[in-house]
Amino acid sequence: MTGDGDRGRPDPGSGLEQEQSRLLRKALHHAGIRHGDLWLRYFSIGGTVGEYEVDAYIQSLMSLPPDQRDLIAHAANELIDEFPPLPRAPYLEDLIQ
């Protein structure tokens, strides 16, 4: 699943970009976040790249500037943080109160 980078430009960051989008893809998949929802959040926090391009970036088909990539990552993390946490086991003290 590792991107082979054949479409990336020969800049030193291209391998990192591939890695960044691959792990983003993995995180989205794991959390079940749709690309459209991610784009909307990204747009809501100031993202400037269109939905189509963001989708292509998630699939490692297109290169985006580093600041936009971080903004996408942040949007994804905000959505992930909004999921209800897994239930925790109570201590006895919690039950008495």
Partner: peptide, 8 residues
């Protein structure tokens, strides 16, 4: 989070 086709 339940938006469809935001761009459209």
């Amino acid at each position: 989070m339940a938006q469809q086709l935001p761009l459209d």
